[in-house]
Design a protein around this nucleic acid. Structure first.
Lengths: 208, 208
DNA sequence: TAAATATCGATAAATTAATATTCATAATTG
DNA sequence: CAATTATGAATATTAATTTATCGATATTTA
């Protein structure tokens, strides 16, 4: 049915729609959104129709209605509690990442094995990794950001999954496979940078 | 010719091949790599053949040869200097990211407008943003990680591009479009997390 | 040395994703 | 109120990506 790309675009549509709303727009056309995302209007309409987002001929889509329905689709009707496992550089940065606030995502706690990183009094507490299991069960955590070193990423993912986590955003430097009972989304900064450098150098050689 | 996915997989192949080499393996089969990446052996062979990476029937591919040729393709024959623009949480974390070291990527400097973040004596200096232009020209910088707030991301990207940067890894919370003379790769943590949560909740509803 | 087997390489098929086209219709205009 | 126009919705087409198939051939083994 709907692929990863579609959902990713849904997030982008939503972001732009919120901007439009703030600017006072009440209606929007597929053509406008297509321009903003650098895709074809047809794809916008197809994406929308896949999720039952309908508009009106001649007068386009209603901004409010789109945002509301997208919020439902993207599960933004309630706040999703998310934990961060591994509070080194990247983990810490994501714990304090501003862009999550007000977007239905709340980082509720961090976990790390290093005692010097523990902090039970901060706005977002950092617990010892030993408290992970109890916390997940107690707070019914379903989503985690995994930012541990390569050596422990696999084991930690297995542990999270065994304790009921169903979605992992993995920013550890090793890609992990998803399972039947858990979605894993990998972000590998090294690979992304390599990719960027590769295509940049292709540009160079083309233009010469 | 070769799409983004192929290059991304090339990075993954390479990562695994380096592991195999460290373990003493000298040869590898498409089937093994396919298992590691959770794709079909046919795709591995196709990816390889796209880049002229050949093996031998019955005895597979030579690990060393693959790594060497992939290093060429991914421009790892020399160290690529990369700057970080915006040294807040994410920017700082990526400046100090260990996984780049020894992988042909060196973060050479950071830039930020906030004086309190300046640090000219650290291992990786953080300069005022005003020094960006001179630095890029002086060090012939082609690649940048963009980690500034949403409000300045677009302008800053334009500036980088106008000064000769041809590849940008954009982790600012707003996707940017690429141009003819610069590749932009967007990583949006909010969108990634939304995507993860969406597919996780789909899993849930399927299993019930 | 001949037969068996595992694996690559190339091609074809299937799947997935994106775009183009066509049609119906609501709004606008004269 | 009829004609025009802009737009969504549905469908068809194209493109892209991935997987499956099959022949050729090194390697192994008897």
């Amino acid at each position: 049915m709907s692929c990863k790309n579609t959902i990713m675009r849904l997030s982008e549509y939503r972001r732009i729609l919120c901007k439009l709303k703030a600017l006072g727009f009440t209606r929007v056309f597929s053509d406008h959104l297509a321009g903003a995302l650098d895709i074809s209007p047809a794809l916008v309409r197809k994406d929308f129709s896949d999720f039952g987002l309908t508009g009106n001929r001649k007068s386009g889509y209603t901004v409010d209605e789109l945002i509301e329905k997208m919020n439902m689709i993207l599960r933004k009707d309630k706040v999703e509690p998310v934990i961060v496992v591994g509070c080194g550089g990247i983990g810490r940065a994501l714990m304090e990442y501003n862009a999550f606030a007000g977007e239905g995502i709340r980082i509720v706690a961090g976990f790390d094995s290093r005692p010097e990183l523990h902090d039970l009094k901060g706005t977002i507490p950092v617990h010892d990794i030993s408290r992970l299991e109890v916390y997940i069960k107690g707070h019914n955590i379903k989503t985690a950001i995994l930012a541990v070193p390569e050596s422990s990423a696999g084991d930690m993912a297995d542990f999270l999954i065994s304790r009921g986590v169903t979605g992992i955003l993995n920013v550890a430097p090793i890609p992990l496979k998803g399972y039947d009972n858990c979605v894993i989304r990998n972000i590998n900064f090294l690979h992304e940078l390599e990719n960027t450098i590769y295509f940049a150098s292709m540009l160079d050689s083309k233009q010469k």
